[in-house]
Design a protein around this nucleic acid. Structure first.
Lengths: 165, 165
DNA sequence: CTTGGAATGTCAACAAGGCTGACTTATCTT
DNA sequence: AAGATAAGTCAGCCTTGTTGACATTCCAAG
């Protein structure tokens, strides 16, 4: 049945198929953010705070500039978020040693706590979806998502876990 | 190699794997919206207008209430968007015949024009990603996305193309 | 040692697009 | 006739994005 559509066959890619993919992305992204959003709504934080926490957790000691590139927002926008996180004692900003213009961002214990809570919720949904779909589907999922990224973002997507081991 | 991870094996679902999936969703969604956003930025419209146009194009004659359910926003929020689209002559609102409380929404020629432009851009990226990843990956992609949706959204995702043939 | 430019931070103002709450008008249903 | 439903509207608020202007600090090249 999958064969009926052919491998690289153009017929496989009808507008209808593509529209369904677009709608799937739309509805799935809502689910993807729903759980953390629910948690964040009970505090004075939003999705922007979650994103910052996630990538600082992922890359402790990352610089503000690096984070800007990853998140793709303006310095002013990130700064507003970062400031409240620092004020509230979730994030620490430390002047760089080699280049003292840079600020290196790390989570405090409190910050790690919230990040864990949010991450747990989001990973739980991801895990359930992965289990339900199975490993081969997951591989395909990842392939399509990666192909959908802008080249610039794809580089960042890979860079985020390089030199990590 | 895929077998090494096992079918329903828990080891397959390390936190690292799940985090990568989360990040893939984040970066891919950016790419997903990038092209229409670029077009919309040159006009007085935003992503909210695009969503409305998409689903009206998909379901000509849909009611306001139905659209509210699909988009998952408040009546006030949708109304703001819809009002400008109607004023600008992209969308038409017609009183229902059987139930005259309802308003049925359709695109005008002008509305269809813009929707096509936006849709073309978004489908082009989708098509490229699908081609690059191949049909099996696409099947997996769709499976995982569907598993990620809230049950309510999943129903709407399916309903949108029912009774269409 | 000076100077250009990079990295960071901050102020102000604005816009899109969410939200709540309150209320009106039509119209349908019971 | 009464109540429920669909739609629209007003007012106000919040988050999160944007520009533009500007200060500070510091590295690095000349």
């Amino acid at each position: 049945m999958a064969e009926a559509h052919g491998g690289e066959n153009l017929l496989f890619l009808t507008d209808e198929q593509l529209r369904q993919g677009i709608e799937a992305m739309f509805f799935a992204y809502r689910g993807f953010t729903a759980d953390p959003d629910r948690i964040l709504a009970t505090m004075a934080y939003g999705r922007a705070h979650h994103r910052a926490l996630h990538f600082i957790a992922r890359r402790p000691g990352t610089t503000v500039n690096n984070l800007l590139g990853i998140l793709g927002v303006t310095k002013q926008s990130l700064n507003r978020v970062l400031r409240t996180l620092i004020e509230d004692g979730l994030v620490e900003s430390q002047q760089g040693k080699t280049d003292r213009r840079e600020r290196h961002l790390t989570l405090t214990d409190k910050g790690r706590g919230l990040e864990q809570t949010l991450s747990d919720a989001q990973r739980a949904r991801m895990r359930a979806a992965y289990r339900k779909a199975g490993p081969e589907a997951v591989a395909g999922f990842r392939q399509v998502l990666e192909a959908m990224m802008d080249p610039d973002m794809r580089r960042k997507y890979h860079a985020i876990r390089e030199a990590d081991t």
